[in-house]
Structure formats: structure tokens, C-alpha cells
């Protein structure tokens, strides 16, 4: 299982990374959330909005979501 946060390096992306980290922690998955502030990666996935939560190379959440519960739900759905 690979969980990544892609972003353009903007403050919102960093904040989103924190939210995802917290969600993964609360789910006890024991997975490191990788933060990749590279626009190229976003484009390669066919996306233009950031930040993006990527699980196993598949975009799961596009755009900022602030609620940990919602992020947890999405992670569970895609595990």
C-alpha cells in the first residue's frame, strides 16, 4: 500500500498532508504518507488541481479536504 499526497508546494497542500497523516495514524495503518510537491507528477496523472491524495498510483481525493473523518472514509474505501 502506497499513500502519497501530491501538491504544487502551496500552503494548502502542506496542510492537506498533515490531515492525511493524521487520518492514516488514526486508522493504525502503519504506513508512511509521502509528500511529493512536484507539479509534474500531478500532470502525469491527468490532474490540474492540487492537492491530491494518491493511493497505489490512483487519485482518490482531488482538492483540499479538511475533515479527518472524511479522509479516513476515502482511505478505507480504497484500501
Amino acid at each position: 500500500m502506497k499513500i502519497q499526497v501530491l501538491g504544487s508546494g502551496c500552503p494548502t497542500c502542506k496542510k492537506f498532508h498533515e490531515v492525511v497523516k493524521k487520518a492514516v495514524e488514526e486508522l493504525n495503518l502503519g504506513i508512511e504518507v509521502e509528500y511529493i510537491p512536484e507539479v509534474q507528477k500531478l500532470i502525469e496523472l491527468g490532474l490540474m488541481s492540487s492537492p491530491v491524495l494518491v493511493m497505489n498510483d490512483k487519485p482518490v481525493i482531488v482538492g483540499f479536504v479538511g475533515e479527518v473523518e472524511k479522509v479516513k472514509e476515502k482511505i478505507k474505501e480504497n484500501i
Binding site: C10, L42, I43, L47, M48, S49
Partner: peptide, 15 residues
């Protein structure tokens, strides 16, 4: 629009 989204948009449109 925030300035931080201009790069992904620019590349994404051209691509």
C-alpha cells in the same frame, strides 16, 4: 485562483 495553481493549470492545458 491562487497563484500556486497557475503552474499546474498552465502545463495541464498545454499538455
Amino acid at each position: 485562483f491562487c497563484t500556486c495553481s497557475s503552474i499546474p493549470l498552465f502545463i495541464g492545458f498545454l499538455e
